[in-house]
Nucleic acid binder design. Structure first.
Lengths: 209, 209
DNA sequence: GTCTATATGTTGATAGAC
DNA sequence: GTCTATCAACATATAGAC
């Protein structure tokens, strides 16, 4: 029994170290881009020797995967928070996608790792991808509800419409990130188009009265 | 005089070698991503020793810049070709932006270098960026003409509308490139939305009769 | 212009002492 | 879990012979 408690403590400590390593990896990602994240640099920042890092991550790719998973978790949280007291359907759909752009603008490093492919050869693990799919399923479900409630035309209850929405929000993110990376959501030349872009989508799928 | 002719021949040969080196660099970019382009690998492929490459490019960054400039030149050519026998205004605007997506989908390597920022520390030179600005000026001008011809509402003659268009096409490109990189334009889950997205834009700026 | 040779630095990853 | 030591590989870049 004492062993179990002790193991729990150890594993909590271990998890905390993992998160701290990811904090440093994310800082590098933000400051110098994905290509600058290396085992050595992460070790340097946390004050370990490189071999020690391998006790926590099997490889450099595992660190990327940890960052990818962290991004997925966080953006889902951001969206859930934004949607928390909205009606299901169109209101949630718009609030959620707006939150998507807001979060991505704030977390440029993680977002670029998730929505671009800046690291040659890095493919997220199936576990990390599962969260990504859950996210898109969420948007898909809100489309269904919005149509059910008569807020959007029937054609909006489709995978195509869902893809169209991701095109819009990732387009805003991409242009903002590559042309004016410093700006925040309200001041950004492209992020400030978010509501207009979403309005375009709504008009495109306006229900016939 | 003989000297001048000889120098011209030499400089032509030199330019040909530069293009050949860029061909190999682009092949690496396409096959393994931007991070895999190195002076050594380019040298290996063309059959030179690495130091010889420095006679043609001052640094690795200069090779990236050459690729960036090549991409700008080629996409402008692709767009001009697509627009060659269209009426100025809306028809050209749509054909041009469609060509933008088609070219980017075909040239994933160059496009990702131009529209994402995959190389830490690499910033295109002012000369290379000039071509990029010329490209956006071209789209801006077509918007002006389209409004002049009454094909779009006056609000479309604005920098905001121009940015909105870039958001749309770069969104299509980004989603296609990161989620289904192999597919070609017609089969792509996202590129096949190009016309629909452009139709959304036209509807958004439909002139009042 | 191309080469050999070299300086100098980096990386990812492993073996094994403590 | 952390370290030292080390590997093998690779990189950018320069000096100088031919």
């Amino acid at each position: 029994m004492a062993t179990t408690i002790s193991q729990t403590r150890v594993s909590q400590r271990r998890q905390a170290t993992i998160e701290e390593l990811l904090d440093h990896a994310q800082a590098i990602l933000d400051e110098e881009g994905a290509g600058a994240v290396t085992v050595s640099e992460v070790a340097r920042r946390i004050g370990m020797r490189p071999p020690s890092v391998y006790k926590y991550f099997d490889s450099l790719h595992a660190i990327y995967d940890g960052l990818f998973a962290r991004g997925q978790t966080r953006i889902v949280q951001a969206i859930e928070y934004a949607v928390r007291d909205r009606e299901p359907g169109l209101a949630s759909l718009l609030a959620g996608h707006r939150a998507f752009v807001e979060w991505s603008t704030r977390e440029l490093g993680l977002a670029s790792l998730m929505f671009w492919r800046p690291v040659p050869g890095f493919v997220p693990s199936p576990e990390s991808m599962a969260a990504a799919q859950a996210l898109s399923a969420l948007g898909r479900e809100e489309l269904r509800v919005a149509v059910e409630r008569g807020e959007l035309a029937p054609a909006a209850d489709s995978d195509e419409a869902a893809r169209l929405l991701t095109v819009l929000v990732s387009g805003v993110f991409s242009q903002q990130a590559s042309n004016q990376p410093g700006a925040d959501f309200d001041a950004g030349l492209f992020t400030s188009l978010t509501d207009e872009v979403l309005a375009m989508f709504v008009r495109h799928y306006r229900p016939t009265p």
